[in-house]
């Protein structure tokens, strides 16, 4: 976790003399889920697009895995990086299979390997390969299109994924499912993800680290908890200080993150992937201040009321 995947140093970008990003420095560790968060026009999307050189920057350097991005041919660079955007950007005249295969085919993978990879990804995104590979995007629901969009971004197995408000255009229930899916993929693949959103709840749910941006500058960089408990400025406080946000944080954090491994407590255990809000509710209902926690392989430990406040 110590070695940075992305290192942005002193990067600036202006359009027609108007600064969009000013002297931004930001380091994203390997395996992190970094959410760029901020109001519209804060430069978060521009920052994301500078990483894969869709937007040229005026000053500073951006390194990916130690390599200066300007030293790599833009198309070669982009083929190494997964990219997903809002409203999916799926090619309407290509079948799901062809859409997912875009980058592997650009990289001239053999047909057999491409087909296997499409099958693997559709399965990973919980879409039945036989049903879906031959469909056209317009035959899919919004949520299914987003899944295909994510599968396409993962196609060439990039170490780094850039996602620009990928779930901005889907309904809340579908978004919830997609977020869960993305978290699962992040956990299982260990990829580094940079994710742009203006939705604080989405950021809290997904991020291991949040970079809040204000007018092209980094307002604060920290874990979700840091940002809620120790906002660095009035801007950050105003942005994250939504009524009851602390409770929402409990609703997105998992018991597994706070469990005291090996401790044994009597009672009906709660699953490790329950949220902290579930745990709190169970404590209130049972009038206890600690609960046993069960992982996938039997009991793993306990969680106490005090752990919720950490």
């Amino acid at each position: 976790m110590t070695e940075p995947m992305i290192e942005i140093t002193g990067v600036s970008k202006a359009y027609d003399g108007r600064a969009v990003v000013s002297d931004l420095s930001l380091s994203v560790p390997k395996g992190a889920f970094c959410v760029l968060l901020g109001p519209s026009g804060c430069g978060k999307s521009t920052t994301l697009r500078m990483i894969n050189r869709l937007v040229p920057f005026d000053a500073g350097t951006i390194r990916i895995d130690g390599e200066d991005v300007t030293q790599v041919a833009p198309q070669a660079l982009r083929r190494q990086i997964g990219y997903a955007i809002q409203s999916t950007g799926l090619f309407p005249h290509w079948r799901v299979e062809d859409n997912i295969a875009t980058v592997p085919r650009l990289l001239r993978w053999p047909a057999e390997r491409v087909r296997d990879r499409v099958t693997e990804l559709l399965t990973l995104l919980r879409l039945d390969p036989d049903t879906y590979r031959g469909k056209y995007p317009h035959q899919l629901s919004g949520g299914e299109q987003q899944r295909v969009g994510v599968a396409r971004a993962l196609a060439a197995d990039p170490d780094l994924l850039l996602m620009d408000e990928p779930f901005g255009a889907v309904d809340p229930i579908t978004r919830d499912a997609l977020q869960a899916e993305l978290l699962r993929i992040h956990r299982t693949t260990g990829k580094t993800i940079v994710f742009v959103t203006h939705d604080i709840e989405e950021a809290l749910r997904l991020a291991t680290v949040i970079a809040i941006m204000e007018s092209g500058r980094l307002a604060q960089l920290g874990t979700p908890l840091d940002i809620i408990e120790r906002p660095a400025s009035n801007f950050v406080r105003g942005f994250v200080g939504v009524q009851g946000i602390e409770l929402k944080l409990l609703a997105v954090r998992r018991v597994a993150d706070r469990v005291r491994r090996g401790e044994i407590v009597a009672g009906e255990p709660i699953p490790a992937d329950a949220t902290l809000a579930d745990a709190l509710a169970a404590m209130i209902a049972r009038r206890v201040d600690q609960l046993p926690v069960r992982g996938e392989d039997g009991q793993v430990g306990a969680i106490a009321l005090a752990d919720l406040l950490r």
Partner: peptide, 10 residues
């Protein structure tokens, strides 16, 4: 969005 996605994928 399609142009953007295409460019972004290389």
């Amino acid at each position: 969005a399609l142009r953007e996605a295409g460019r972004g994928m290389g």
